[in-house]
Design a protein around this nucleic acid. Structure first.
Lengths: 166, 166
DNA sequence: GCGATGTTACTCGGATACTAACTGTCCGAGTAAGCCAGG
DNA sequence: CCTGGCTTACTCGGACAGTTAGTATCCGAGTAACATCGC
């Protein structure tokens, strides 16, 4: 299994729909987001609850309600989203097997359990590198990037689809 | 769950035991490795089969047999090991949900499916950064690092424990 | 002595449980907006 | 009118089932070193 759940994919793509390439925010309900993207509705609901708890989106309840970005899209990074949805996921979980050494029957010596184990340290560095890359890209970056690929009318089509459902 | 299985931890620590801080190789059986480290024997066996198939270790069958590093420890990187044991694991698996857009009922336009999706691209960069970090550290690096922490007698103790079992 | 035979300690591979996490679905509660009927 | 109740469309939260991957265990086959026994 991959490190990041597919909920991450749903989440990021959904947040990208809550803004356009100019950074203008858009309000949408989970139902609309799910249907527009062909993604399971209930499941996407759970994801938005998490995004909301992490203060990445703001909800308005009741009829006509929905979600909108809680901050401007250039201040929401991909790392923010992954941590909001999947929690702080680690590449590697150290089990401290260095303390199980048969040689340590009389008790684990101090040098063997102090500090971070060598394997763990390497993994931590790798994880930091990965997270730095994820923190470098924002929702706005991604939205702009895809807008550049799509024809101009696409953003208009999306907007029309959304308003036609109110 | 973490990206890397705990088999990775077992594997790396085991390979570290097949050398010392001077880069001298050591032959050990899976049983010895498992007992010395307090790790499940059968499970570690499976891991070494994978390491063997990836040509990181060489096996000698029959009584008195065991495993030894197939190359010198400064030429075995952590990335080599993770890929040998867990296969080439991806941080993220793109489901191409961009192609599910309700707007594309008449068929997915070319711009929407060509090239890598934006989210996917970010994830790929992050993954490359992570792998670069893992490829930078070798078994010898790690062995040296822990040897620096441990008292000098520790390497001797290990060697004695191993020879005492032959 | 010395060759055949058996025993032991290994590497391999397959089969199988158990567990945890991910994915997805169902349902009920609360809330806000709009509609509609009765005064 | 206009006010109170009804309907609708949302957000939330809990519960649950199906699937998959990781972890671990068991067992049998093949192989090589060594010991043992009969001649």
């Amino acid at each position: 299994m991959a490190l990041f759940s597919s909920g991450i994919e749903y989440g990021i793509h959904s947040l990208m729909l809550l803004t356009d390439s100019k950074g203008t925010l858009r309000d949408m309900s989970v139902r609309d987001l799910a249907e527009l993207q062909g993604v399971p509705y209930d499941y996407l609901g759970k994801i938005f609850t998490k995004l909301s708890k992490a203060n990445l989106v703001k909800s308005t309840e009741g009829k006509g309600g929905g979600f909108r970005l809680a901050r401007s899209p250039e201040h929401i990074t991909i790392l923010d989203i992954t941590e909001a949805i999947d929690g702080k996921k680690r590449i590697f979980e150290c089990k401290e097997i260095r303390q199980n050494m048969a040689l340590f029957e009389q008790g684990v010596p101090q040098w063997a359990c102090s500090g971070v184990c060598g394997v763990h340290r390497v993994m931590n560095v790798a994880q930091e590198r990965m997270e730095a890359a994820l923190a470098q890209q924002t929702i706005l970056d991604l939205t702009r990037q895809t807008a550049r690929k799509a024809p101009d009318e696409f953003e208009i089509d999306v907007q029309e689809w959304v308003t036609s459902r109110r």
